[in-house]
Design a protein around this nucleic acid. Structure first.
Length: 221
DNA sequence: GCAAGGATATCG
DNA sequence: GATATCCTTGCA
């Protein structure tokens, strides 16, 4: 993915990221994993009281102040890693949180990686693989920021990786040219009540309207 | 509806 | 050094 798409205003970068592919190359006998980004949120500047940059530069958020296209991964609620993509030029702290992707390739590996972190208590038998259609469960394997990181095996140690480098084993790729441009919907961001107005109501969450892989209740898709 | 879970930023 | 808080999730 072209870095210039992420170097501009973060709201434009967030929209540009919808439809982009998150790719992790094969490793440790695991197959390639690919997902289509269907939901993101923008966090913009030190004034944004919902952003990790609100306290200024710290050890944790330092990469947010760096060049665009770099991964920023943090731990939330003591359990889940969340993948962000740094936007805007160096010195301007901003990032886009990847909240959901549609699994396209390496779905079994995504499920395994997720279950390694989140125990699946329901031992529901796996349906016969003869079925060509993906189950709803498949489509929702990575429908949440913690689930995206889990499905791709992304952790805080991935912070600093260049996602725009075509040679990186974890990277972003532009959508195929012939892919239909989806209808984009904007809503308030999720889980930022602590920030207070006006930050709680800024329509800085972007999603592919009606897509089954978007996180949260159906009415917010 | 709510507990789990650990790092983070802030305060004493 | 102690503690309130957090860009979530799956289960009761």
């Amino acid at each position: 993915m072209d870095r210039s798409l992420l170097a501009g205003p973060t709201l434009a970068a967030a929209r540009a990221l919808l439809g982009a592919r998150l790719v992790r190359d094969p490793h440790d006998s695991l197959p390639r994993r690919i997902g289509r980004i269907v939901e993101v949120e923008a966090y913009i500047g030190e004034d944004d009281r919902a952003s990790h940059a609100r306290f200024g530069r710290t050890a944790r958020n330092a990469v947010m102040f760096g060049p665009p296209g770099i991964a920023y991964v943090y731990l939330v609620y003591g359990m889940y890693d969340c993948l962000n993509i740094v936007t805007e030029p160096e010195g301007s702290p901003a990032a886009v949180l990847v909240r959901a992707v549609e699994p396209l390739e390496g779905i079994d590996a995504m499920r395994s990686a997720r279950e390694a972190l989140v125990r699946d208590r329901r031992r529901r038998p796996v349906p016969a693989s003869s079925s060509p259609a993906r189950s709803v469960r498949d489509l929702r394997l990575a429908s949440g920021p913690g689930l995206v990181a889990a499905a791709f095996g992304i952790t805080r140690s991935d912070t600093g990786r260049d996602l725009c480098d075509a040679g990186s084993s974890l990277r972003l790729e532009a959508p195929p040219r012939d892919e239909n441009r989806a209808t984009i919907r904007a809503t308030a961001r999720i889980g930022v009540d602590y920030a207070g107005p006006p930050w709680t109501t800024r329509p800085w969450r972007f999603l592919v309207a009606g897509h089954p892989s978007v996180s949260g209740p159906a009415r917010l898709r």
